Amino acid sequence: MFFASDNWAGAHPLISERLTKEAAGFASAYGTSELDRSIEARFSDIFETDVAVFYVATGTAANSLALASLARPGGVTFAHSEAHVIEDELGAPDFFSGMRMIEVAGPLGKMDAESLKAQIARFPQDAVHHGRANSVTLTQATEQGTVYDLSEIQTLTQIARENGLGVHMDGARFANALVALGATPAEMTWKRGVDVLSFGGTKNGCWCAEAIVFFDPAKAREMPFIRKRAAQLFSKSRFISAQLAAYLDNDLWLDLARHANGMADRLRDGLAASNTARLAWGTQSNEVFAVIPRATAKLAEDMGAKFYEWPTPKDVAETIQKDESLIRLVTSFATTTEDVDRFLDILQQA
């Protein structure tokens, strides 16, 4: 019963097989092989426009270098107050981009449009002493398991456009958000005003595959230098391409996300019907947040369940009692119905 993180899951067998196949023979290095070029073309097909693609090792690297590509001296980037770029990346986005991350409030992981406007207004373009507004970063799906719908993305990117700001999307769980919305990759990104995407594969069945995707290749001119300087240029990049070849083939990536979301739906349904636990708030992706008695959480852990106790957001703090725990449950491509049902049975037994 591994619900701690989708990072805990291994690699999908088809992706492992494709890596093994690529291990034999020789291929030109640093993104110049035939396989590398074919995957770049595949991304353009998926997003219905010509894109520029750059592989990096981690989601933190993807976010940091993508924001660095948008940076200007003295710039500030606006992110939700609980976004990964602020909470969990040890200042890497600030370090690599030279910008500061400015918090924007909003319920359940999503930036509030009026709060974004107010924060941007604090940093006019001629504010030499305080910094100038530079870019906006959206997390899709959010750190609280919610998903921006297309109109919400459009509203926030329009605010950015009106202020001359670039827009980045942190897509560590991009596929999960995509299938939750039933949208196309183009509809959820550049058609809504997103400039650059951190496209995550590691959480959804890849071994190690993260990519930075530019929807206007002209805006990616500096990225080869930014990536090299950050020590993120793979010599044997074909092994990232091999993973993505299997991942994208026959829409495996979407199938894996649908499975993960489906297992989360099963958890949500079970928790909604439980007498001993409850959903902390509604989510749409593969993250579920539940409130359970502390004694029940201890019992579940003793019986083999893996999950994290989660910091309580301010907007739900009053609903959680002292003898209760807020926990996060994350499903993956490898989660089974047996895992989910056993966990729900433990809650019921308690």
Rank of each mutant, 00 (worst) to 15 (best):
F3D: 10
A4G: 11
A4F: 02
D6S: 13
W8T: 10
G10N: 10
G10W: 00
E17W: 04
K21M: 02
E22N: 07
A23L: 14
A29E: 07
E34R: 12
L35G: 13
T49Y: 04
T49W: 03
A52E: 15
F54C: 02
F54R: 15
V56P: 09
S64V: 00
A66F: 04
A66D: 08
A68K: 09
A68W: 07
S69D: 06
P73S: 15
A79S: 13
S81H: 13
A83H: 15
V85G: 03
I86G: 11
E87T: 13
E87C: 15
E87H: 09
E89Q: 11
A92R: 03
A92V: 12
P93L: 03
M99P: 02
I102F: 01
G106F: 00
K110V: 00
E114A: 03
E114N: 06
A118Y: 00
F123W: 00
P124N: 09
V128Y: 15
R132S: 07
A133P: 11
T139K: 08
Q140F: 13
G145C: 01
Y148A: 00
D149H: 02
S151C: 13
Q154K: 10
T155I: 02
T155P: 03
T155Q: 14
Q158A: 14
I159S: 03
I159Q: 01
R161Q: 13
R161P: 06
E162L: 14
N163W: 03
G166N: 09
M169W: 06
G171M: 00
A172V: 08
F174P: 09
F174G: 10
N176W: 00
L178K: 00
L178H: 00
T184P: 04
M188H: 03
K191A: 04
G193T: 01
V196F: 04
V196M: 05
L197Q: 04
N204V: 02
C208Q: 15
C208A: 12
A209Y: 09
E210H: 12
V213Y: 08
D216G: 03
F225S: 11
A231T: 04
R238K: 11
I240H: 13
A242F: 10
Q243F: 01
A245D: 03
D251G: 03
L252T: 12
R258M: 06
A260K: 01
G262F: 09
M263V: 04
D265L: 11
D269S: 10
L271H: 11
L271Y: 12
A272C: 12
A272F: 09
N275T: 04
Q284H: 07
V291L: 07
V291M: 05
I292C: 01
P293L: 08
A295E: 11
T296Q: 11
Y308E: 12
P311E: 15
A317G: 11
E318V: 04
T319C: 07
T319N: 11
D323Q: 10
I327W: 07
V330W: 02
T335C: 09
T337I: 08
T337F: 07
D341A: 09
L347C: 15
